[in-house]
């Protein structure tokens, strides 16, 4: 007979992969349905379209997941994306040197914006919901100061390098894979990753065990900022310009994609494939509504319904806890 905690762990393990697995199945079904209606979607150009529409959200959702894992929340992701998108589009220029330096500067700004969030939430002891909501206005306001109306420009070479495709392989997927391999994998291969999960699982015992709770929370917001910066650079490439309203939709959708991919809103549980697959499912559904001639007036309704169901599902999982006391303690 196995000890009960092993059983508990195995159940946790299954649950951990239920989200990504159901998303993967959903994604295959979706693309299949899409292809019946529009077979050319399986052409290299079509596949690149599907990847491109999903990758910005996938990057934002991976960033959101890092924060969710620590039982935090980042409502400034959309505004971070907007601000960095405007910065990149107004400063990029056209020489290889200026492009490279703006890319590096954008990533640094992403880390800095995340650090600002982390300081407000972890050191300022402001609830993440309120803290990041407030910083989102600071970031969005700064974006409007840099670029009051859409404009700026991005060299064609930079745009093609991120949004083109090599045969059936879209470059946007390469970017996403690189971001995961160069950021997520090393973080979760190190102590920081284990701390992030531990703190999200039970902040109180993590603190008692002597884990640097505040520094880990700070790091998670910084990493979210870094992923926002990559998403912002990708959007700049996709639209070859900057737009002070471009990021707004990514805040709520990144949450929905993460929850759809099985990430717990209560912290401590989630994978990297979950939010990525969740983002693809969500983006392709929104895209397909148009292709399937769903009336304009129903599209918003359906988008809202999906968001509500997915976010509600996260809450439902909490209510299924062993005892109501556990719910009240959350």
């Amino acid at each position: 007979m196995k000890p009960p905690e092993a059983k508990e762990r195995r159940r946790g393990g299954v649950e951990k992969h239920a989200g990504p697995l159901s998303c993967a199945v959903g994604l295959v079904v979706l693309i299949g349905l899409y292809a019946i209606r529009q077979p050319l979607i399986l052409s290299p150009f079509g596949l690149a379209s599907l990847a491109n529409v999903s990758v910005a959200l996938a990057l934002a959702a991976v960033g959101q997941t890092l924060v969710l894992l620590t039982a935090g929340l980042d409502l400034s992701i959309g505004a971070e994306i907007t601000l960095i998108n405007c910065f990149a589009a107004t400063t990029m220029g056209s020489s290889a040197l200026s492009v490279a330096s703006v890319v590096v500067a954008s990533l640094v700004i992403g880390l800095a914006l995340g650090a600002f969030n982390g300081l407000v939430v972890a050191y300022g002891r402001i609830e993440p919901l309120i803290g990041t909501f407030c910083t989102s206005f600071i970031f969005a306001g700064s974006a409007l100061i840099i670029l009051p109306r859409p404009g700026g420009s991005v060299p064609d070479g930079f745009a093609a390098a991120l949004t083109g495709n090599w045969g059936p392989l879209p470059f946007s997927l390469v970017l996403l894979a690189a971001a995961v391999l160069l950021v997520w994998v090393p973080v979760f291969g190190s102590r920081l990753g284990r701390y992030i999960t531990a703190i999200g699982d039970d902040p109180e015992s993590a603190r008692i065990s002597g884990l640097p709770v505040r520094r880990v929370a700070l790091a998670s917001y910084m990493l979210a900022g870094l992923f926002s910066a990559i998403a912002a650079l990708f959007l700049a490439a996709e639209t070859t310009s900057g737009d002070p309203s471009i990021g707004g939709i990514y805040t709520l959708n990144s949450l929905a994609a993460a929850v759809l991919g099985g990430v717990s809103l209560m912290g401590g549980r989630g994978t990297v494939m979950g939010p990525i697959l969740g983002s693809f499912v969500l983006s392709i559904i929104l895209n397909a509504l148009g292709v399937f001639n769903v009336s304009a007036f129903w599209q918003d309704f359906i988008e809202g319904l999906i968001l509500m169901l997915v976010l509600g599902l996260g809450g439902f999982r909490v209510l299924r806890a062993a005892s109501w006391l556990a719910v009240l303690r959350q």
Partner: peptide
Amino acid sequence: NAGNNVAQQVAQIRQ
């Protein structure tokens, strides 16, 4: 309709 979502409108036009 893409809503005020530039990435979706880009995808829509590609489609």
